[in-house]
Design a protein around this nucleic acid. Structure first.
Length: 306
DNA sequence: AAACTTGTCAACCGCAGAGAC
DNA sequence: CGTCTCTGCGGTTGACAAGTT
């Protein structure tokens, strides 16, 4: 136990500009590999892991650092998460300029928000039916179903369970999130079994799984496996994403998810009033919602197009 | 203005697979 | 075949910023 080896204390924590510079120089010279030799060459008192992580998440060229996910990117993540599960690295290959860490952070923020909303429905700022919503039990984990494998029956019962609690109905935030192809796994919700089931009027409802072609994979960019390829295919990528704009304006626009559950067809999102004045219709039910809750949604095709 | 909450980001950790020895 | 090292991935945490009360 001489302790002569590894006298260099490994640095941890935030990277300094000088360290970044050294790391960049190293990659320029040797390429993004042999991370451990950065330490063994005495260039940086950092582990190879740390160096690699820094490069991948911050220093690699063409990263969209500091830009919020656009509506399109959100759509892609949600769609792919439903398909692949938490395969962040894989998902990130479909998002030029995004790292697995970015995707992971985006998703966990979203999950946290959903969990919070579901746990304390009355705490939502836009909540109007104060005191009417039942309190939810502790939520364990939230996991989106694998849409690729979910059956129609499962999806159907999933939705009806999701709609069982009136507190969902009163909570636009929940609707907003659940309307995305990302349903809370009902088994994890611990819903009050005795709650009366909300009867939705028999709306002609196209199961959203059938609507998936709206965000089906042919629309997705090819995985971006290599940066040089990215620049070569940039036009293609931009074509798919539609614009060079990195961050969407707050009133973001073309999100083609819609509200498949409620057959909210052809609706101007600022004018969700539909046919029928039945107070229980979903359309009038949406009237109470802040207009911005449909920020990321695009009107569905009219039911006649289904 | 201060306290609190929520969102975002960066970085760590443990684990697993692949390849070299 | 077992061990070691490197690499990559996913989960988690903590710091900080921004927003809200």
């Amino acid at each position: 136990m001489e302790g002569h080896r590894e006298e260099v204390v490994m640095r941890k924590g935030p990277w300094m500009a000088e360290e970044d510079e050294i790391l960049m120089d190293y990659v320029k010279k040797y390429g993004p590999r042999d991370w451990s030799s950065i330490r063994s060459k005495g260039l940086l008192p950092r582990t190879g892991k740390s160096c690699r992580l820094r490069w991948v998440n911050k220093l690699k060229p063409d990263l969209k650092t500091g830009c919020k996910f656009s509506a399109e990117e959100e759509r892609v993540v949600i769609d792919l998460q439903a398909r692949f599960g938490n395969k962040w690295a894989r998902i990130a290959t479909y998002l030029p300029g995004r790292t697995d860490n970015d995707v992971k952070n985006f998703w966990s923020t979203r999950q946290k928000r959903l969990a919070r909303i579901l746990q304390t429905p009355t705490a939502s700022k836009s909540q109007k039916n104060n005191g009417k919503a039942p309190v939810f039990h502790e939520l364990s984990t939230l996991e989106a179903p694998r849409l690729g494998s979910i059956s129609m029956e499962e999806e159907s019962s999933l939705m009806s369970q999701t709609c069982q609690s009136s507190s969902y109905i009163g909570n636009p935030e929940v609707i907003k999130m659940v309307a995305l192809p990302d349903l809370v796994k009902p088994s994890s919700l611990n819903l009050e079994p005795s709650l009366p089931e909300i009867e939705f009027p028999s709306i002609e409802r196209k199961p959203y799984i059938d609507l998936l072609p709206q965000f089906s994979f042919p629309q997705l960019p090819e995985p971006v496996l290599d940066l040089p390829l990215l620049s070569e295919n940039q036009d293609l990528v931009l074509d798919v994403f539609g614009h060079r704009e990195i961050s969407e304006p707050e009133n973001g626009s073309q999100f083609s998810v819609g509200l498949p559950f409620f057959g909210l067809g052809n609706s101007d999102r600022n004018n969700v009033k539909g046919e029928g004045d039945n107070p229980t219709t979903p359309d009038s039910f949406f009237d109470d919602f802040p207009t911005d809750m449909f920020d990321y949604m695009e009107p569905l095709p009219s039911s006649s197009e289904w």
